[in-house]
């Protein structure tokens, strides 16, 4: 007994500092890697950033020149994705929260398919987008195919966040509007959707952020062409694809790749930060309102 107690004490004396060391070491390692990455991006990319870089066309396969047409293509692809995914996502979320019984079979089926869809890797969305939108529907390598592929990809995140923000609206409000004789359609339009709006927008922004960071799903749906697109049926190169192409296929493209990466991260931080702010703001109101 005495021996065992002493053993435990010695072990404790060794274990305690060992664990502290391991935990602090890991944390410092992670922080170091992060700072290294961000510092490197700033170091190599910041000097090239300018208004001219953002607005001019890429020259010499992207080694020099800017990213103007690429930003336009990126925005168009995102626009298509949002235009296709938002009506579908919002409608599904409204149906799941406001019209179906919580454990209805249809609701569970839709939920399960969304969960599985969320697990499908992005390269597989690329394969599907190529086979369905580009080849089967004949859209070819175009902004439209890329945007629609991304729409499929962000659908689960849109629906789940919209569902969560609608569910967070207190049930009293539903009862109140029913007592006032409002139809569900009117209650949705005038009370529930406005009340859930900041959560809905936050979810939308998260989806946009996810779509913007995506590369693998776009390589063989929206393609590589770096000219200014003249319609949605043109191929357009997204910012992430531009970074990939410059660093892998263009010798001497690293400088502009870093600058583009900096632009991409800046945009993402802006989008995700706004989403986070809105989500917190929405939570606060949720606590005060009822």
């Amino acid at each position: 007994m005495f021996e065992a107690g002493r053993f435990a004490m010695v072990r404790g004396r060794v274990l305690e500092p060992l664990m502290t060391l391991a935990v602090w070491g890991s944390a410092l390692l992670v922080a170091g890697a992060f700072l290294w990455l961000v510092g490197d991006l700033l170091w190599h990319g910041a000097e090239r950033l300018s208004w001219a870089f953002l607005s001019s066309s890429p020259l010499n396969a992207g080694r020099t020149g800017g990213i103007g047409p690429i930003l336009v293509s990126t925005l168009l692809i995102l626009g298509v994705a949002v235009a296709a995914a938002v009506p579908l996502g919002l409608a599904t979320a409204v149906l799941l929260t406001e019209f179906l019984r919580p454990r209805s079979r249809f609701g569970r089926l839709v939920g399960l398919s969304l969960d599985v869809l969320a697990g499908v890797p992005s390269i597989v969305f690329g394969l599907f987008g190529n086979a369905f939108f580009s080849v089967f529907l004949g859209l070819g390598f175009s902004i439209l195919s890329g945007g629609l592929t991304l729409a499929c990809m962000v659908l689960p995140i849109l629906i789940r966040t919209a569902e969560a923000s609608l569910r967070a609206v207190p049930d009293d409000w539903r009862l109140g509007s029913a007592a006032l004789g409002l139809s569900r359609t009117a209650a949705l339009r005038h009370i529930l959707l406005p009340a859930a709006s900041s959560g809905l927008v936050a979810g939308l922004l998260l989806g946009v952020g996810r779509a913007m960071a995506e590369t693998a799903a776009l390589i063989f749906t929206s393609g590589y062409v770096d000219r200014m697109p003249s319609s949605l049926f043109d191929s357009g190169r997204a910012l992430s694809v531009h970074i990939y192409d410059l660093s892998m296929n263009v010798a001497g493209g690293d400088g502009n790749a870093y600058a583009s990466a900096l632009v991409l991260i800046g945009l993402l931080i802006l989008i995700n930060g706004t989403a986070l702010y809105l989500a917190e703001h929405w939570l606060n109101r949720r606590i005060i309102a009822p």
Binding site: P87, L88, G89, A91, T92, V94, L95, L96, F99, F106, L109, V110, S113, L114, V116, L117, V120, V124, F125, L127, F128, A131, F132, F136, C152, L155, I159, R184, T185, L188
Partner: peptide, 23 residues
């Protein structure tokens, strides 16, 4: 409205079926 919403939800669920079918 419920009818329209069901169609939209059906489409959303069909995306997965479509992906599996095309693969």
């Amino acid at each position: 409205l419920a009818g329209w919403l069901s169609i939209a939800a059906g489409l959303a669920a069909a995306v997965l079926v479509l992906i599996v079918l095309f693969l």
